[in-house]
Design a protein around this nucleic acid. Structure first.
Lengths: 241, 241
DNA sequence: TTTCCGCTAGTTGTGCACATCATCATGGCC
DNA sequence: GGCCATGATGATGTGCACAACTAGCGGAAA
């Protein structure tokens, strides 16, 4: 039944052979590239993605590109309209309130459902994240901030062994993460807000690293929960001003 | 923004025109049909779905069918392998333990996140569900049991206004609902188990209807939570015997 | 001047032919 | 007699041409 076992054949690799990649690997690669572009606002909300352009860029035809776009559409990041185009969904703070509510609840579950006790290398990864935050604090940059935030999320997500939970938390994260860059870039006191946000994020990372070091994953969940909640409230207040 | 409003034009409908359906409507229709077939074991685990057969059945080509299959694959109900076919995923009680854990937690959230106070028609729908359970109790049938269970889930899901939660809960539900029919059909004491399970389900519905009638949606969540949890434990015990 | 009709350009959706891949049967070689 | 190679077969994946559809522009009529 299980087709998952790696086939150990005789000579040259018939499988993805180190350098190559199968159809599934290419799908994942393009999917992640496009998702990152959307969340870093390389494709701003409302902009159009021409299927043929993407096909040319990745050196394939429209067909496999469409698979990726369909996936991104089900995730809520795109919307394809017949005869019009494939446009990046616009997002609004109020519309994301429900997603944030759900993320708050799920954050706590990460420390409760099948928690994975972090080993030495994982703890090292957390400390490395803290170091990146130090650098960010000295040299603030919104794009780099978004990237670190993303990497930190994946690291946190790896603390639970519950795969469905990981998948869902990831999906919700990518539905909401754009909103900060979008609203912040339109604020007048942009520099101040960025610096402030980075400072708060640095504290969150420091707190969580402390909790990880002593192996208290439930505490990680609580810290994370409160920070997601507060982050949303700040966002809401800023967008109303 | 909202394209959801029904267009009230002059004469003959330019939109889906009552009888017709757009590409998106057809997608949903076929998607639901196939999902139901999978969950009712019309397509048993391990069986193969030929894209061309499906294309012929629905009177279209392989292309739009593939969209549906890709979706069902991301939901975890199918698995397409190049050169082999698209096969219905096989499921195992132990593998679903994590999904059940998550469903247990989410069940409680339905009563907490943006609960919708049920109006008269909704309460009537719940009572109708109870009536269907009465009928089922007198004339046990596994397939009908699965159908009622499905409808009851959707009714419960409509009690929360949190759309992301509804979507996720639905996805997890359809990942797990097949397992009961599959394991039960292989038991020796099939009739007894079915009768017992229906009796318990009838109690659950009665309890929840009572809670809905007094408008206590948090209680609904708690009842639902405990029943999902116990249902999984029974399943696990039965499959081990 | 304004409004409405229709045309054109451009995009996604669909159908079909072919490429790619895995499985299985078959036959020759050791 | 057993084993490996090889081709036939049938499935999904890909590329391409065309259909369906929308938005915008332009011109003619009221």
């Amino acid at each position: 039944m299980s087709l998952h076992e790696a086939d150990i054949h005789s000579g040259a690799g018939e499988r993805p052979a180190a350098g190559e990649e199968g159809a599934r690997g290419r799908f994942d690669r393009i999917y992640h590239v496009l998702r990152t572009r959307i969340c870093l606002l390389d494709y701003p909300p409302g902009s159009r993605l021409r299927e043929e352009d993407l096909a040319d860029e990745f050196g394939i035809s429209r067909t496999p590109i469409r698979r990726v776009l369909v996936r991104l559409e089900t995730e809520g990041l795109l919307r394809s309209v017949h005869g019009v185009g494939t446009i990046v969904t616009d997002i609004d703070v109020e519309e994301l309130a429900q997603v944030y509510q759900l993320r708050v609840e799920l954050a706590e579950l990460i420390g409760k459902l099948s928690p994975i006790a972090p080993d030495a290398s994982k703890i090292a990864a957390f400390r490395g994240m803290l170091a990146r935050c130090d650098g960010l604090l000295e040299q603030p940059d919104p794009r780099e901030f978004a990237r670190i935030n993303m990497d930190f999320f994946h690291l946190l997500n790896s603390l639970t062994g519950n795969e469905p939970l990981r998948e869902i938390a990831e999906r919700l994260y990518y539905q909401t993460t754009r909103i900060w860059l979008k609203t912040a870039s339109r604020l007048s006191q942009y520099e101040e807000v960025l610096q402030n946000e980075i400072t708060i994020f640095h504290r969150e990372v420091a707190d969580i690293v402390s909790a990880v070091e002593v192996g208290d994953l439930e505490a990680v969940g609580h810290i994370r929960r409160s920070h997601i909640s507060m982050s949303f409230l700040r966002l809401r207040n800023e967008s109303r001003s």
